[in-house]
Design a protein around this nucleic acid. Structure first.
Length: 561
RNA sequence: GUCCCUGUAGCUCAGCAGGAUAGAGCAGCCGCCUCCUAAGCGGCAGGUCGCAGGUUCGAAUCCUGCCAGGGACGCCA
């Protein structure tokens, strides 16, 4: 419908150019938007307002000229000029209702597009180091990152989900020392407990499994415990594998799968860190000072230069980061999105600067970042800060166990990434209308129920009869649903382009709302075969779009509640 | 002090590549199940869109300054 209107308006603009009403050189991007108020029709354009100045006419006069120049079309019932010069379009019922046919015809593919043309995109998210179970912040990253991937896939991109971690740094040896202490029977309150050691109860489990000689297998490794209580290296290797498995189980419970697990240590082993240093040095962007090697990141927009090789000879974290991103570039990813917590925001400028200093043709603003703000968890109105298992933080698993995977995903992805999120456990648990996840899922289940009813009444859905009579969907409530359905492909597109998964959640809530309103206003199971079937068709189309949208969020669409 | 994010109804938040009287849920009040799932729907009430300027025919949306909250400013990751 919208595209039809744009085409018509393009025709009108051309005609007006011919007549000399509009100057030849105007090339307006024609914007047609769904109206908020139904007294303004179904769609509106601000075209006349935009072109009033170049045309040297009053907006309303120009609007009139545009309307008069509009090619005839069956799709438009009538037009109106309103306010300062908006042109309002009232869609012909039949044309608006054709979206039902389109949705039923496309099925799962309704809303999908080939915008990305198969281009490779890599999304790095979660990227937790294997030192503990995933926390809520990782959960937010997982929900947003995975939804983003689904959106990109739906818009025609070839997506690689990647998880980056370090299995050899200072934090890992801290992990090993912590497990070692537990192996020795020490508790965190003991005087010889390692400084900044990990205190969570899961360390006890690691220690026990290590001593028991167990084998653990994670998505990217399998290790059998040596059980030697004094072999710190063996403990470390086992602990890393153990926690990788732990995190895999968390992710699996959340329904997130990765294509690639990338090890920071591999960058050293493959000489990629050294190669990066060499490149940066050869390019003349480094200097020695205070016994350390610095990268002149200020040349590329950073507010101060950064140390890349420490006085003790080791590299700072930022160097492997640059090497890693160079590797992404070399793997052919023109688009890379890093989904991280906002506490990593200081790395953005640094990594980009480092990549510029390599001078290998990487664009300035590459890669993209989606940074999410903090998550606060509340129960009974009080902030929850601890979990027994992890010690100092609330785990993703706690949430999944308590409120379920669907609600957790929905809640964590339903808000803009850059606003702080309060995760209200009571709300997410509640099986009531207060809970947005249930609200959407219920709409889906309601359609399913309707169909079951129809089957039971020996009145199965008659596809052809329904599609031949879609113009019967002419109540305000039905039109609202039709218009909402028609918007879905664009919402998916915008959500993918802007990297804003929350738009899908918002859309689903709106669609579910329109549907519930319609459900209460218009009875579907009527005796009239034709009427009943067209209404069933609207229900089916709604169900399909709810399903497609929920799928983009990785949330299930239940047949009954 | 510098940088990033946020500030919209009592509460939780949508809306922000500018568009018509600013939306939803919860909380409050009043209604709707002899009828397809009331996990639902309708109505009432509730707002200086943090403040002040600016750009524009038009600003919650863009620009500047200020205020408030959060985060980041490490030879930690």
């Amino acid at each position: 419908m919208k595209d039809t209107l744009i085409t018509l308006l393009e025709g009108a603009v051309e005609a007006l150019k011919q007549e000399g009403v509009l100057p030849q050189d105007v090339q307006p991007t024609i914007k047609v938007d769904p109206t908020k108020d139904k007294s303004h029709g179904d769609y509106a354009t601000n075209l006349a307002l935009m072109l009033a100045k170049p045309a040297g006419m009053k907006p309303r006069d120009l609007a009139e000229a545009v309307v008069n120049a509009l090619p005839a079309s069956d799709a438009v019932h009538k037009t109106d000029i309103a306010g300062p010069g908006f042109i309002n379009f009232f869609a012909a019922t039949d044309a608006a209702a054709q979206v039902v046919a389109q949705v039923l015809d496309c099925g799962d593919t309704f809303g999908r597009s080939m915008l990305g043309q198969g281009q490779k995109v890599q999304v790095e998210f979660v990227s937790a180091n294997p030192t503990g179970p995933l926390h809520v912040g990782h959960g937010r990253g997982a929900a947003i990152g995975d939804c983003l991937c689904r959106l990109l896939e739906a818009t025609g991109y070839d997506v690689t989900r990647e998880f980056y971690y370090n299995d050899a740094g200072a934090q890992i040896s801290n992990l090993a020392r912590s497990v070692h202490a537990r192996v020795k029977g020490l508790t965190p309150d003991h005087s010889s407990w390692p400084e900044d050691g990990y205190r969570g109860d899961y360390i006890i489990d690691v220690a026990e499994d290590y001593l028991a000689g167990k084998t653990v297998s994670a998505d990217d490794r399998e290790v059998t415990a040596k059980a030697d209580p004094d072999d710190l290296d063996a403990i470390q290797t086992f602990a890393v594998a153990w926690l990788r498995r732990e995190q895999d189980l968390d992710l699996k419970a959340f329904g997130v799968e990765f294509d690639v697990y990338f090890l920071e240590s591999s960058l050293y082993e493959d000489g990629k860190v050294d190669a990066t240093v060499e490149k940066l040095t050869d390019n003349g962007h480094t200097y020695e000072e205070d016994g350390a090697t610095w990268l002149r990141t200020t040349t590329f927009g950073d507010d101060k230069d950064r140390v890349m090789r420490k006085r003790d000879g080791g590299y700072t974290y930022f160097l492997p980061d640059v090497a890693y991103h160079l590797d992404k570039w070399q793997r052919g990813f023109k688009t890379v999105i890093n989904e991280q917590g906002a506490d990593h925001h200081s790395t953005v400028t640094r990594v980009r600067a480092g990549l510029q200093a390599l001078e290998v043709g990487i664009p300035k603003g590459w890669p993209d970042y989606v940074l999410h703000q903090m998550v606060m968890v509340t129960r009974s109105g009080v902030e929850v800060k601890l979990s027994k298992r992890a010690g100092s933080y609330v785990t993703l698993r706690d949430l999944i166990d308590e409120v379920g995977r669907d609600a957790t995903r929905f809640f964590l992805a339903a808000r803009r990434a850059d606003s702080q999120l309060t995760f209200d456990i009571d709300l997410a648990r509640s099986q009531s209308n207060e809970n947005p996840v249930y609200y959407v899922q219920y709409a889906h289940a309601r359609v399913c129920s309707m169909l079951r009813k129809a089957e039971a009444a020996q009145q199965p859905f008659d596809h052809d009869l329904a599609l031949a009579n879609l113009a019967l969907l002419d109540s305000d409530q039905e039109k609202a649903v039709l218009n909402r359905l028609a918007r879905f492909p664009e919402v998916v597109e915008v959500a993918a382009r802007n990297r804003e998964p929350q738009q899908i959640a918002q859309y689903l809530l709106d669609l579910a709302g329109d549907f519930h309103t319609c459900y209460n206003a218009v009875k579907v199971m009527v005796d009239d075969d034709t009427l009943r079937n067209t209404r069933l068709a609207l229900g089916l189309a709604t169900r399909q779009v709810l399903r497609n949208g929920l799928d983009l969020m990785g949330v299930r669409a239940p047949e009954e509640m």
